[in-house]
Design a protein around this nucleic acid. Sequence first.
DNA 1: TTGAAAGCGCTAACAG
DNA 2: CTGTTAGCGCTTTCAA
Lengths: 354, 354
Amino acid sequence: MWKRDSITIRDVAKRAGVHVSTVSRALNPGTRQLISDEVAARIEEAARDLGYSRNALASGLRTKRSALIGVAIPDITNPVFPPILRGIEDTLGGAGYTPIIANTDNDPERQRLVVSRMRGRHVDGFILASVARENDPAVTECLANDLPVVLINRAVDDAAVPSVVTDDARGIRLAVEHLAGLGHRRIAHVAGPQSLSTGFVRYRAFRESIQALDLPTDRDHLAVAIAARFNEAEGMRACEDLLVSARGSELPFTAIVAANDLLALGCYDAFARRGICCPRDVSLTGFNDMPFVDKMNPPLTTVRIPHYEMGVQAAQLLLRQIEKPGSARMSITLAPELVIRGSTAKPPSAAGVG
Amino acid sequence: MWKRDSITIRDVAKRAGVHVSTVSRALNPGTRQLISDEVAARIEEAARDLGYSRNALASGLRTKRSALIGVAIPDITNPVFPPILRGIEDTLGGAGYTPIIANTDNDPERQRLVVSRMRGRHVDGFILASVARENDPAVTECLANDLPVVLINRAVDDAAVPSVVTDDARGIRLAVEHLAGLGHRRIAHVAGPQSLSTGFVRYRAFRESIQALDLPTDRDHLAVAIAARFNEAEGMRACEDLLVSARGSELPFTAIVAANDLLALGCYDAFARRGICCPRDVSLTGFNDMPFVDKMNPPLTTVRIPHYEMGVQAAQLLLRQIEKPGSARMSITLAPELVIRGSTAKPPSAAGVG
DNA sequence: TTGAAAGCGCTAACAG
DNA sequence: CTGTTAGCGCTTTCAA
């Protein structure tokens, strides 16, 4: 067995008794039809015998296409991303592209670093799931150098950047309407970071939904706490802020709409600390329907968004952009769906009713 | 603003008034000291001004090092992998390497494809978290072409392959001893796929632990069901097999040791279907302590393994192998830890005791 | 339909 | 310390 992978196109050419350029043509789908079937077959056989595999670095250098796609996400440890990544990888892989994934922790500086590193690798395009709400330098950089880019789950003020998003406003409305339908009139919100479009849009949608339902909007009835990050710890902190504001034993609200599932889990933690029983004392909704929230205690009522499908769509959008650069840049909005489980119930005062 | 990334080392050289090779040396950490500080500073400034970034394809072609690492895992959607990947990425990234991740679904054929694809990209090494128990073609291929490789969570019959594993046998023993200490004498096992070393080793450790404790080992008292895959659905199926074998209302066991958390969650599903209450009727343990199992209903008693740390260690092992090829190949075994939560309690018969 | 030759951007001898 | 030169493996004109 041969050592190292020194088998190049030249070895194949020698063995098949043809010129290297002929081998190149025979082995490239795009130029394959220029070669006679007989010769092509001989070349393929030689290649297989030798265990040849094309050096992607060399061909990339020549063609200026690396078949690499840069994917930036906040944190792979956040359970919403694995299904998205799986959708991306399955789709990209089918088309011969390889994703390279990097975590940014929602830090613009880190994101910039990551993107410039990927540029060094000459990726053919980007899928960005962690851009800031406005003036994200990474997006600016891609646009300026017109590198194909697709955004996931984040819209950017500057339109004309293709993206795959869910209708967050609608998702929040579904949650609020569900709670209102149950009889809740004082609903609080644990909002996400306002620098991220998801956090911002959901907060706005929350306010609008409350207004649309003619629920009280004065300060005493509309409690909101903003989490600095989309994680459990911040969810707990924000929720405690909400709870602390309660004077006496009576809570100023009977339900909480959390801006995502991680924040909702943080609320569970806060409830546990203060002996609050969900949904008996307070109802709670999340957002994302990430894996296993159906097995929590109580099972979380949340807004489902099709993660895998988002990954697939984003990858397809990007591929189209790469393969025909002129084509219209479009954005895709996917519909969310409310999944009602055990964390929502009638408010305490209405418990005996119905 | 310039278009495309046509800024090469030559542009920088021209602007700094030096030769390209000088630029190359100045910009490479390894050769930087060959250049006078003054010239180096001028070059760095020129590079920054022009927004130059090294073309990794070209340099990789020349040096035969891509600074890419192939990482193969069964499925990123399995929550144990994200922390591992994060550990890998953080460590590799710090050393200037980029991981490319692929899912194999534990399919040897797919794994082979993935590995050969990565070879085409001339990765400098592999981290494999999804190899079969024996004769894995991907491992064979790496070894034959002496490509650096590190295994995660899977040991291979052929020693001399560096790996990072947890002491699975010890983990299972901790679980069994915990249950026995609670008073359980009839303990069942939901085993993982026997073609995977984790499934195989944990099953063996289960049998040995039972014997070591002098618990009954005859067929009537030692129920085992084997899951075909490490997922929730198979966990449920296997658990139902176990439950069905019960004649009458009396279960032939009072506790189940599941080979991992996903299988344990499947057991919860099976319990729910049959109205079995955990831990009142049956106690249950998992393996991995994957994220959020502490919030399940009931919170899962499980064996914790340090996922992030495993990723870090694997990456370090690989880097050492790449950077000094001659160095001794070592394997690392990490100690597991039992985390006792709400899914284990005294057996029904002993409920009134104590 | 195939061969010849040039060159992608970079690094590594070898000179000086 | 810096410049010259050759070439990594591949694709792509241009010829034949």
